[in-house]
Deep mutational scan, measured.
Amino acid sequence: MTEYKLVVVGAGGVGKSALTIQLIQNHFVDEYDPTIEDSYRKQVVIDGETCLLDILDTAGQEEYSAMRDQYMRTGEGFLCVFAINNTKSFEDIHHYREQIKRVKDSEDVPMVLVGNKCDLPSRTVDTKQAQDLARSYGIPFIETSAKTRQGVDDAFYTLVREIRKHKEKMSKDGKKKKKKSKTKCVIM
């Protein structure tokens, strides 16, 4: 069974824990209790493949930012979460993405942009803004509501699919490099 290491990042209060708990335990946590770091595991079937999701729910508070490099190193894919009623959390996505790329030393890291709290009427981040940002990053965008469960499975499952595509691409690139290195030079 394939294991996928997913990391949920975003500013404090955007609903990272609520999304994760909704996926794992099928219930909505409405009281806000700032996370330092929590880890969850769940076995699911995605596109006919049974897999184990190892999900790291991270601290959004700035005082825990020193811990970010460590979990970013171990993560295979990242859910970059903002709240649709919090423009600052949307603007912060850029910083999370840049930090992930720096730590992973790669421009090509599996990510999904997630606009959470889409059940709320007080939207300050337009869907088109988020779609445009995701398009500019070359990553999928999904709106979710941890409260109603809308888009929750889709967000995590899409990230797994992005990781699969990335692994497939990397193995193809690896095979191309191996083929090239088999060419021999004969000096007579």
Rank of each mutant, 00 (worst) to 15 (best):
T2Q: 11
T2C: 08
L6M: 06
V7I: 10
V8Q: 02
V8K: 03
V9F: 14
G10P: 01
G10V: 01
G12Y: 08
G12I: 04
L19G: 15
I24Q: 12
H27K: 12
F28H: 02
V29E: 12
D30C: 10
E31P: 03
D33V: 02
D33C: 02
P34E: 02
I36P: 00
Y40W: 02
I46W: 10
G48T: 10
T50R: 11
C51Y: 11
L52A: 13
I55G: 00
I55S: 03
G60Q: 01
E62W: 06
S65K: 04
M67L: 06
R68Y: 13
Y71D: 15
M72D: 13
G77A: 14
F78C: 02
L79M: 08
C80M: 08
V81W: 00
V81I: 07
F82L: 06
F82M: 08
N85D: 06
N86P: 04
E91G: 05
H94N: 15
H95Y: 07
R97H: 14
Q99R: 09
K101I: 08
R102L: 08
S106R: 11
V114N: 00
G115M: 12
N116R: 01
C118Q: 11
C118N: 11
D119Q: 14
D119H: 13
L120S: 13
S122L: 06
T124H: 07
T124P: 08
A130G: 05
Q131S: 10
L133P: 06
A134L: 11
R135I: 14
S136G: 06
I139V: 07
I142M: 04
T144E: 03
A146F: 00
R149E: 02
G151A: 07
V152I: 10
D153H: 07
D153M: 09
D154G: 05
T158Y: 06
E162Q: 10
R164E: 11
R164F: 07
K165V: 09
K167W: 05
K169M: 07
K169G: 10
K169R: 08
M170H: 11
M170V: 12
K172E: 03
G174A: 07
K178M: 05
K179W: 04
T183W: 03
T183G: 05
T183L: 11
K184C: 11
V186R: 09
V186T: 06
I187L: 11
